[in-house]
């Protein structure tokens, strides 16, 4: 088995090759450390090409493509999802779509006794998030994928009254807000973006369970409608 894993749901471009036994090669570009607009459209294809070269692989060897489908940065998701589905269709292999929040939470799965709360930056002072609990053998998601302001999320955390670990570029963006609260711990920058090893590992196990999609059916998870649709629905009838 050989998987290509693509994540473009934050400012970072992440590409990896791997299988059920782990990552064979990976490359990360951009992220919070880089100023200026994100460059997913410019960087993703060269990143894949470069990684193929140095790992001495060919796309023809691929079994499937695992892609982080969001929620996250819309432009990034469109580049990643389009690249994954078009490549997979051309290679006649399936796509394994994986929610980006699952991939932020996964590296924290050995943190027991606390709620894991990956939070990705949704801009406009909002966060994409979901709640997870560590269970034997992995993680269990304990909420829907949600969108809220940091203060609404804090209100929710308070109401639940449980200790949480908040992770992801959204958690870091509002670090002071979360750190000021006794129930919250904020995970560091190494947990800012969806984990590429997690994308390979989860992708491989889903592939083995034949839990995958036809390339044409894969779309990003946006969680937010367009402004025009929202305004349209708010019109008086």
């Amino acid at each position: 088995m050989l998987l290509l894993a693509i994540d473009t749901s934050t400012r970072r471009v992440g590409v990896a090759f791997g299988s059920q036994v782990g990552v064979l090669a990976s490359l990360e570009l951009g992220g919070a450390a880089v100023d200026g607009p994100p460059r997913h459209a410019e960087q993703l294809a060269p990143a894949i090409e470069h990684l193929l070269q140095i790992a001495d692989l060919s796309l023809r060897q691929l079994t499937a493509i695992a892609v982080a489908i969001g929620p996250g940065m819309f432009t990034g998701l469109r580049v990643g999802v389009t690249t994954a589905k078009v490549m997979a269709q051309a290679l006649r292999i399936p796509v394994i779509p994986i929610p980006s929040l699952d991939l932020v939470a996964y590296p924290l799965r050995h943190t027991t006794g606390r709620v894991l709360l990956p939070a990705l930056d949704a801009r406009r002072n909002e966060l994409y998030y979901a709640r997870y609990r560590a269970v034997p053998g992995g993680l269990q998601r304990a909420s829907e994928y949600e969108l809220a302001t940091p203060s609404d999320l804090l209100g929710e955390i308070e109401a639940a009254g449980e200790s949480v670990v908040v992770a992801g570029d959204g958690a870091l963006r509002f670090r002071e807000v979360f750190e000021a609260h006794e129930l919250c711990e904020v995970a560091g920058p190494s947990f800012a973006a969806p984990s590429l090893p997690a994308l390979v590992e989860l992708g491989a196990s889903r592939f083995e369970r034949e839990d995958f999609a036809a390339p044409g059916d894969v779309v990003p998870m946006y969680l937010r409608r367009s402004d025009a649709e929202i305004a349209h629905d708010r019109r008086p009838a």
């Binding site: 459209a41 993703l44 294809a45 894949i48 090409e49 796309l59 469109r78 580049v79 389009t82 690249t83 078009v86 490549m87 051309a90």
Partner: peptide
């Protein structure tokens, strides 16, 4: 992105 994917 689609065209570059096919080019690759």
């Amino acid at each position: 992105s689609a065209a570059k994917a096919l080019a690759l």
